[in-house]
């Protein structure tokens, strides 16, 4: 141990297949988060319970949470970005586009 205070985990990975993690505390833009030994910088403020991209998700690529497809990216989502209704859409009962 480096003697630093052990910081409380801020994001939760629900399945190894996921490309998003869930904030379990409110995250500020610029916060550096650690998951599985990898560091990731938050590109946006992310509320409690909201999702953060763990790596770049290309337009039309699947967004994976719980190891399952929860929708597709409406645009390129850079790693560290807030992932939500502004950049993800449902594949179900969708009449648009």
């Amino acid at each position: 141990m480096s003697g630093e205070m052990l910081e409380r985990q801020k994001i939760l990975l629900l399945s190894v297949a996921d490309n998003v993690a869930v904030a379990i505390v409110p995250i500020k833009k610029g916060d550096v988060l650690e998951i599985d030994g990898k560091k990731i910088g938050a590109m946006d403020d992310i509320d409690f319970g909201h999702k953060i991209a763990l790596r770049e998700i290309k337009k039309d690529d699947n967004v994976i949470k719980y190891g399952e497809i929860i929708g597709v990216a409406k645009e390129k989502i850079p790693a560290g970005s807030h992932v939500h209704v502004h950049n993800v859409k449902s594949l179900r009962a969708d009449r648009h586009e």
Binding site: V22, A23, E68, I70, H84
Partner: peptide
């Protein structure tokens, strides 16, 4: 508001 984006999720 609670972070759920789609019906699938």
């Amino acid at each position: 508001r609670g972070g759920i984006s789609t019906i699938e999720e």
